[in-house]
Design a protein around this nucleic acid. Structure first.
Lengths: 174, 174
DNA sequence: CTAGTTTATTTCACTGGTGAATTATCAATC
DNA sequence: GATTGATAATTCACCAGTGAAATAAACTAG
């Protein structure tokens, strides 16, 4: 099996070596960047594995969770696209899949009949309440050994990084 | 456009709300987890966008960089699978693509003829040296405002998280 | 009322990645 | 030295997700 630790060792050596060949490279930043990519992908795989027994994939899960988290349990395809960073094409497919399983309903909005109103059903709520708790242990285990201070720091640093990424994105689409 | 900051605001509210409905949830950990997923995906998209003009995708780039970082510039498909966390099937495709562009060569190993030896070509090295520097500004910009201490902390926390993820993976495949 | 814009859906072609079976080689054992 | 089993890479058929373009319906502003 390819342990994350192995990959990291190898990545560290790789960056050192590339840093010798291309000295202008911001090595420390590149390292962080790769770490974020590796960990993000790993967590993604972990989550996907947890969801598979329930015949859900990541974007379907996310969509369902957003609806579940809304006080009125409803949203629109456009809004869901925005927050799940999915294309409209895919959101239609996701909605189709969730409607077929009766976890959500699709209806047209009263005041703007172009809009489609997507709403989580009682069965959808029950489904979330069944699916969610079994993933708590893993989520907790990811942060064993993190002190309260560690969590605060981590949160701060991730949000700071998010801010930088936003700026970086803006200047690419001017 | 869907700014990361917006998604985060929405995620925070969502987790608060779900936390009320399902109180056993480890809210702080779930928040970190989602942050990692969002940032990882964003960095991934950013990288992919930077690579697209060069007709490379993430896994091809990674493969090429590993080869570039090796003192002898060579590896085998199996090893590359391990470090890129790709299936063997996909590695064959990646190698095909890179061979077609003459960035790598494929030859069979002398001492074990099952093994294929993949080696970066001089053109491959030149290609990396051309492609790499233009991404340095972005990589640097991702961490503007990070003090030396911030970088140290961030590195420490990410590696700690990696350790936990490894343990979590082990106990799923016993 | 008309022209233009927004919202959602559908279709199509394409990319990236996966699982199952296949082929070739090696290593071990009888 | 033939047989069995493991390992490395490839091939094939398939799926999920994407981007672009076309369509349709409904809203908005002049």
């Amino acid at each position: 099996m390819a342990t994350l630790a192995n990959c990291i060792v190898m990545m560290d050596e790789g960056i050192d070596r590339v840093g010798e060949l291309v000295p202008q490279m911001p090595a420390a930043e590149a390292r962080m960047c790769r770490l974020m990519l590796m960990l993000g992908a790993t967590i993604d795989r972990e989550l996907e594995a947890k969801l598979k027994p329930n015949k859900l994939n990541h974007s379907e899960f996310l969509t369902l969770m957003i609806l579940y988290s809304r006080p009125d349990g409803s949203s629109t395809p456009g809004e869901l696209c925005e927050f799940t960073t999915q294309g409209a094409t895919n959101m239609t497919r996701i909605a189709n899949a969730l409607v077929k399983r009766a976890l959500i309903t699709r209806g047209s909005s009263k005041d703007d009949r172009r809009r489609v109103l997507i709403r989580i059903t009682p069965a959808g709520r029950r489904f979330v309440q069944k699916v969610l708790p079994p993933m708590f242990p893993q989520v907790g285990a990811m942060f064993t050994g993190f002190s309260a201070g560690d969590m605060r720091q981590f949160d701060r640093l991730l949000r700071k990084l998010a801010g930088n990424l936003d700026q970086l994105g803006e200047q690419r689409l001017p």
